[in-house]
Design a protein around this nucleic acid. Structure first.
Length: 714
DNA sequence: TCAATCCGTATC
DNA sequence: ATACGGATTGAC
């Protein structure tokens, strides 16, 4: 009976990225179920693989080898997950094996067998109800039985340990005592899902299309929205209500947030709104046993609502009805391992495949999300201007020109007098947040007179200096331009856009003697929350603690550093970080004030003052259409030793619309950028994948990293 | 004439 | 990758 097993072998080579057929020996016939892990002899070696399907016959002309062993009958690779992994691999010019490594956590045999017993015959030890830690249960909770369990869908991986990049590392202990970021030793939900009552709309009624979105969810439809969240602490509750609505309609929900801090806020929100036991969290840094255990719980469909960080984007949520991505501009949503998928893309793909609803948003708005609106894939979900105005703090810019220029001392401390006054007034009624830039931004170049960003005349890439006094060169195509003149004011002088970001804490301490000083992020451990009493809270972007009752004021001191970054997304990213900080401040009616130290003429600053990220993102998108940058086009970056990059390019049959930029020097050797219209995106990915296959079949030396629409274009 | 080695190709 | 086969080279 179906004697052939189609197997995806875990080999990283591009030209072997296809199924291979094996015979199922009689003794394994029962265990060799679709989706299970197997061992097979491949090219003489024993390797791991996944059984994709059983078949009656093989197309393979030669002899078939036999399955060596079924590692476990647990069907970890469902057809849905297999199809998703294939699609993600194709989209990113990578291999399915690479995607599966991101999507399926390593097996933990003890955990698997402990969880296998369908009755709560809980094995003692790590995975059962842990009587030693009662009440420590923010991550997941016990589930009472009844009700039928739907089929599992796709797969997921709690990967990447530690905080990658911007936001701080995983927090295991609380400082000021609000949330532990990593939930500890929860109970095991073993029985089938039990019914979830539909939550009230709550603060969704403040959004114009909010109730309609929830109604559509409740009736099992698949609304897709780009969400502009109102400032304040309500977003976790709002996500919880959306997820609860999907669950009440009998479908699963998957929520991805950037980091452990946001996950713990969301976790609390889910528990608050839906009660304990309705959801489970998947976070990096849980440890192999716990990670696998929770993943299995999700796969078995005993919990409908799954929340996690990036790695959870592949989580095998049963009968997916809603995907949610919070703060989609955070670069933590970009997976740093091959094939470098972005959570936004993967969740959008999944929503599409599963006919699920999608909710993508945050306080800020990315050009990518705006592009989803522009293409008609999603609709905007936002509040009326009057509601927004009612909620936001009073926001002012302290420009460099006026106040900073007059006061040399203030300029050194980067504290204009408006900022100083605002902080002083705020400290009378509560904590004041000071957002400072983190170290290590590269210096980009701008016009010395009008401060417009300096761009390459050939391809529009950012210019930079290799060293002081060098001829400015393009970061993308390598063109040098000794004759550069500012296109805006025709001035010929260049200046670095970033001044060193020294430690601001001590300076501020001197300015406010006697005020408690709390530092979060940068060299200091991130602090999740602070009390509502007066204190100066110095934080780097992404590490801002929540304040009980909201901050009285915030000073955003990192304007130049953020705006001056030599990144395509500098303005968008600056605005995102400002909005995220300003969203923690009380509304203007309650005295909340924000001062951003940047020129009020800059569009991103205007967008902050008016709290209008959508318009800014639309403008950003229009600009990228004009300049032909992602997401208006599709780009691929090839990095590696120069010869290897050349050989890949030589092997690639690129679409004839492809435009080559570079090569430029990169830390890995050389980098080429390829640019095609969006319509040729699939063709570009396919061409690069085939070229990789040719290279790996030929055993060409030197690795080449192929990255589609990389998050940071220099 | 045989064996050690190189290259190319397939891997169920 | 690794393993195999067929061609190639070098020494008896």
């Amino acid at each position: 009976m179906l004697p052939v097993a189609r197997v995806a072998v875990d080999i990283p080579l591009a030209h072997l990225d296809r199924p291979f057929d094996y015979l199922v020996p009689e003794r394994l016939a029962d265990q060799a179920v679709p989706g299970c892990r197997v061992r097979v002899r491949f090219a003489g070696q024993l390797t791991d693989g996944y059984l994709l399907e059983r078949a009656a016959a093989s197309q393979h002309p030669g002899q078939l080898a036999r399955l060596e062993r079924v590692v476990s009958p647990e069907p970890v690779l469902s057809p849905e997950l297999a199809a998703l992994a294939r699609e993600v691999a194709d989209r990113y010019a990578g291999t399915m094996a690479d995607v599966l490594r991101l999507a399926i956590p390593p097996r933990h045999a003890r955990t698997e067998s402990a969880l296998a017993s369908p009755e709560p015959g809980l094995a003692p030890g790590e995975s059962g109800l842990d009587p030693g830690q009662p009440g420590l249960d923010p991550g997941e909770s016990a589930l009472p039985p009844p009700g039928p369990a739907p089929d599992p869908a796709a797969g997921g991986d709690p990967g990447a340990p530690g905080g990658v990049g911007a936001a701080g590392p995983c927090v295991t202990a609380t400082h000021t005592g609000v949330h532990a970021a990593i939930p500890a030793a929860p109970a095991v939900p073993t029985g089938p899902v039990h019914p979830v009552p539909r939550p009230e709309p709550g603060s969704w009624s403040q959004y114009r299309a909010g109730p309609a979105f929830l109604d559509a969810l409740a009736s099992g439809r698949a609304p897709r929205a780009v969400w502009s969240a109102l400032p304040g602490p309500h977003w976790p509750d709002e996500i919880a209500r959306a997820a609860g609505t999907a669950a009440a309609a009998g479908r699963g929900a998957l929520i991805v947030v950037p980091d452990a801090r946001d996950l713990s806020l969301l976790d609390a929100g889910l528990t608050r709104v839906l009660g304990p036991g309705q959801h489970i969290t998947l976070a990096a840094g849980l440890g192999p046993a716990e990670r696998y255990r929770r993943w299995l719980v999700v796969r078995r469909g005993t919990v409908r609502i799954v929340a996690g960080t990036r790695a959870a984007m592949f989580a095998p949520v049963a009968d997916l009805g809603l995907v949610v991505l919070w703060d989609d501009g955070d670069d933590l949503h970009a997976e740093p391992r091959a094939p470098y998928p972005h959570a936004r893309d993967v969740l959008a793909l999944r929503a599409h495949r599963a006919g699920a609803a999608a909710l993508i948003g945050g306080f800020a708005r990315t050009a990518e999300a705006t592009s989803l609106v522009a293409s008609g894939w999603a609709r905007p979900l936002s509040a009326d201007r009057a509601v927004v105005r009612d909620r936001i703090p009073q926001i002012q810019a302290a420009g460099a020109d006026s106040e900073l220029a007059r006061d040399a001392a203030a300029q050194t401390a980067r504290l204009p007098s408006l900022a100083l006054r605002t902080a002083r007034a705020g400290l009378a009624s509560g904590p004041v947040l000071v957002q400072v830039p983190r170290r290590g931004y590269l210096a980009a170049l701008g016009c010395a007179r009008c401060r417009a960003r300096a761009r390459c005349a050939t391809c529009g890439g950012p210019l930079s200096l290799a060293h002081a006094g060098a001829v400015p060169g393009c970061c993308w195509c390598g063109a040098h331009d000794p004759q550069w003149r500012c296109p805006r004011c025709a001035h010929g002088g260049l200046r670095a856009m970033v001044t060193g970001a020294g430690r601001t804490a001590e300076e501020l301490g001197h300015a406010f003697p006697g005020t408690p000083l709390i530092a979060s992020g940068g060299a200091e451990e991130p602090v999740p929350a602070v009390p509502g009493s007066p204190a100066l809270v110095i934080a780097t972007p992404g590490a801002e603690p929540r304040a009980a009752g909201g901050y009285a004021a915030a000073l955003l001191l990192d304007g130049w550093a953020l705006l001056g970054r030599p990144s395509l997304r500098a303005a968008e990213e600056a605005l995102r970080r400002w909005l995220n900080a300003a969203a923690l401040v009380r509304g203007a009616a309650a005295g909340g004030r924000v001062v951003v130290v940047a020129d009020a003429g800059i569009p991103a600053v205007q967008a902050l003052i008016r709290w209008d990220p959508a318009t800014h993102a639309e403008r950003e998108l229009a600009e990228r259409v004009q300049l032909r940058f992602p997401p208006a086009v599709r780009m691929a970056s090839l990095t590696g030793p120069p010869d290897a990059v050349d050989s890949l390019l030589a092997a690639a049959q690129l679409p004839d619309t492809a435009e080559l930029l570079g090569p430029v020097e990169a830390p890995e050797g050389a980098r080429m950028l390829l640019r095609v219209p969006r319509s040729a995106g699939q063709a570009l990915a396919a061409a690069l994948r085939d070229a990789q296959a040719v290279r790996s079949a030929r055993k060409d030396p030197g690795p080449v990293r192929v990255q589609l629409d990389p998050a940071e274009l220099s």
